[in-house]
């Protein structure tokens, strides 16, 4: 990578990186209410479907996905997880999210950045220690609101055309 390809200063880079690490902590520690605060009110949170296609056809279908959520529905999901009848995640999965390969690009809007990162989630459920791996790329639109960064758009591209985890009761 040439120097000119680095589009943001080191401070911004650290802010974004810390933000994503903090988010992973919120999710892995199940601090869902805190997690909701990372989103802008107009968040659109999606996860398109991957398909098995011959080149050069696209292997991503955005017409429908694994998530199609806004702030209200994400809040509903969190509220549901806080009831005592959220059977699929109670007892909760043990999760560990590894966020790496962070790429930050400028956008044509001054206070917004295009941030891509890799997600590898380890998810273990049940009494036998079995686990699923959920891998993908997050494409986030970061927006600076006052002194804070918020995520205004998330598109999580999972790397399986048939998911190997029995449900997405965990957030991407």
């Amino acid at each position: 990578m040439t120097r000119s390809a680095i589009q943001v200063d080191l401070e911004t880079r650290l802010e974004i990186s810390d933000f994503l690490v903090q988010e992973a902590e919120y999710l892995d520690d199940r601090q869902y209410e805190e997690w909701l605060t990372i989103f802008a009110p107009d968040i659109h949170y999606t996860a398109p479907i991957r398909v098995h296609r011959k080149s050069p056809a696209s292997d991503i279908v955005d017409d429908i996905g694994h998530f199609d959520d806004d702030f209200a529905s994400l809040t509903m999901r969190v509220k549901r997880l806080r009831t005592d009848v959220a059977w699929a995640e109670d007892p909760p999965s043990h999760t560990r999210r590894l966020i790496t390969n962070i790429r930050i690009r400028l956008t044509d809007i001054a206070d917004e950045l295009d941030v891509r990162s890799n997600l590898l989630m380890f998810r273990s459920r049940g009494d036998r220690g079995s686990y699923d791996l959920i891998a993908g790329e997050r494409q986030d639109r970061f927006r600076r609101i006052g002194q804070e960064w918020k995520i205004a758009r998330r598109r999580a591209i999972l790397d399986q055309s048939s998911l190997g985890t029995k449900n997405l009761g965990v957030f991407l």
């Binding site: 998530f67 199609d68 959520d69 529905s73 449900n167």
Partner: peptide, 22 residues
């Protein structure tokens, strides 16, 4: 309708999750 489907049923659906566990 699409958003409602994805949020309630499907891989991340709030109903589907509990069924798969059972």
């Amino acid at each position: 309708a699409k958003a409602a489907y994805v949020q309630t049923f499907g891989s991340s659906g709030m109903f589907d999750q509990d069924d798969t566990e059972n």
